[in-house]
């Protein structure tokens, strides 16, 4: 058993260090997310929208990209992806506190509206699915310029009913563009369950209509996610066009800190969802293959906690952007 599982990351060409790095990103994502909830519940920040339950899908996907080269048009839950792409915990907390220096918006947007020029993370808005078209446009431009970059975008399964999703996939399919559309299916769009969103079984079933492969992958299995994305990345770089990947995920929290899911979600269902927690599963794998034991795990937790404490402290101590600058950057400045 152990030998067979050991082969999984090595079979994918991932070293032990890389496998541990993947887990570290997942755990960092989870612990930051948990901290944000504490801060929100204690009144220190106004808003959280979680990645909890989707860390495997996010880190596995982003790990298949090349940092600083490839592009990401994220959605609000993509904490795991933006960390892998290069955003630091400090920067995440700056956005959470809406403080000066937040690279996404310098405190102008609600938190979780990621953006980072340095790391090719395109600024996002709140209306869902608009970013799909931006990703397709970046891919079109890159193709025109002959650059071999790959563009990834994310959205939820509910948002895959927006026109922009379908227009984007169709455009990308017609022009065979180097992009990957990642639907993180967590079975809910706020309170509305999957069966009221889709008449087909999988969002990925829509892909053939747009002339691209549609791939379904277990979002709690980070290595399966990584494998699916690496294939899609290779395909895109070879000039073979876009891929739609749907990762089946769980949402372990209410929709956001403004939601109360007890009004629509049975508690037993959440318990069942916890069985699919990607952190637990990856941790178990690492134990099985001997990359983690209690001592190493403890050390990792301590290290991450320190990093988060430091980042939070730093961000809290920063000033707000002065209101004198509120009129800046409406148009290009002379």
């Amino acid at each position: 058993m152990a030998t067979q599982t050991r082969n999984r990351h090595q079979e994918l060409g991932l070293s032990d260090e890389q496998m541990l790095e993947i887990y570290r990103y997942m755990l960092l994502t989870r612990r930051i997310d948990e901290r944000l909830w504490l801060l929100q519940r204690s009144g220190k920040i106004p808003f959280v929208i979680s990645a909890q339950g989707q860390e495997g899908a996010q880190v596995g996907a982003a790990y298949a990209l090349v940092r600083g080269k490839d592009w990401l048009a994220p959605y609000y839950r993509d904490l795991g992806k933006v960390l892998v792409m290069g955003m630091t915990p400090r920067e995440v907390f700056l956005a959470a506190f809406a403080k000066q220096g937040d690279p996404s918006s310098n405190g102008r947007q609600m938190a979780h509206h990621w953006g980072h020029r340095r790391w090719n993370i395109i600024s996002g808005s709140s209306p869902v699915a608009t970013q799909v078209l931006h990703a397709v446009g970046v891919a079109l431009a890159a193709k025109m310029k002959g650059h071999d970059i790959v563009v990834m975008t994310s959205l939820g399964e509910g948002s895959s009913n927006q026109g922009d999703f379908h227009e984007g996939l169709n455009f990308a399919g017609v022009h065979k563009l180097p992009c990957i559309i990642h639907v993180q299916n967590n079975e809910y769009a706020i309170s509305v369950p999957l069966k009221k969103q889709l008449a087909c079984e999988n969002v990925a079933d829509r892909a053939p209509g747009y002339g691209m492969p549609g791939v379904v992958v277990d979002g709690s299995d980070v290595l399966a996610v990584y494998a699916a994305f690496r294939e899609a990345v290779d395909r895109a770089r070879r000039g073979e066009g876009p891929t739609l990947i749907e990762s089946k995920c769980v949402r372990l929290t209410p929709h956001s800190s403004d939601d109360d899911d007890r009004t629509y979600r049975p508690r037993e269902e959440i318990e069942r969802a916890r069985q699919r927690d990607p952190i637990t599963r990856t941790r178990a794998y690492l134990y099985e293959v001997g990359l983690l034991d209690e001592e190493r795990e403890q050390a990792l937790e301590v290290e991450i906690r320190r990093e988060i404490d430091e980042a939070q402290e730093y961000a809290e101590a920063q000033p707000y952007e002065p209101v004198e600058t509120a009129m800046r950057h409406v148009y290009k400045e002379a």
Partner: peptide
Amino acid sequence: SAIVGVGIGAALYG
């Protein structure tokens, strides 16, 4: 929406 949205993406890329 795609004509404009894809245009935006291309513009973001330069």
